[in-house]
């Protein structure tokens, strides 16, 4: 099971938990709290708006480019600082970065996701936030996305990578 896990991690980046410490379940509530803040930003900045996504891809507005660009900038500076000063987690663990390996999936899957993104006006994060705002029909879109992930898992060995 363990070697299988490692293999899975190598050939498919999952947003991995690099922590080796076992915590009680309620420690996970801090991620819920961060998620709440994230969801509020999504709504308040209208990033989960279908209209904003159309504008972005039709090059009618700088807004989303500004959001993503400045997010990457702050993210990159933070990562640089974490590495430079060897900043540890609040539990004193060393922070681990997981290198991603290239495969054809990033091109084919990337194109597929891009097409779906402009149709639904949402990447996976905004799907959850849209449901939260009361757009209940998006639950169906989310189920369809879960089904898409499942079908990918089913066909994985037959797809070019």
């Amino acid at each position: 099971m363990i070697s299988h896990n490692n293999e899975m991690r190598k050939n498919d980046s999952i947003c991995t938990n690099e922590s080796q410490i076992d915590h009680k379940w309620y420690h996970n509530l801090k991620y819920t709290f961060v998620g709440i803040l994230f969801g509020i930003i999504f709504v308040k900045a209208e990033i989960i708006s279908w209209f904003r996504i159309q504008e972005m891809f039709r090059l009618e507005s700088f807004f989303m480019y500004g959001v993503i660009g400045s997010a990457v900038m702050i993210g990159a500076i933070s990562v640089f600082l974490i590495k430079k000063f060897d900043i540890k987690t609040i539990y004193g663990e060393k922070i681990i970065f997981h290198p991603k390996t290239f495969n054809k999936g990033q091109i084919i899957g990337g194109l597929m996701f891009g097409i779906g993104w402009a149709m639904t006006g949402a990447c996976p994060g905004p799907l959850f936030a849209q449901i939260g705002t009361g757009a209940t029909v998006i639950i169906i879109t989310l189920f369809s996305a879960i089904l898409g992930t499942w079908v990918y898992g089913l066909l994985r060995d037959k797809l070019p990578h």
Binding site: F113, L142, A145
Partner: peptide, 18 residues
């Protein structure tokens, strides 16, 4: 909604992230 959602789920996993 349904095809779009499917592409989001299939595509992100195939690409290894969103």
């Amino acid at each position: 909604m349904i095809l779009g959602g499917f592409l989001v789920g299939f595509g992100t996993r195939y690409a290894g992230g969103c």
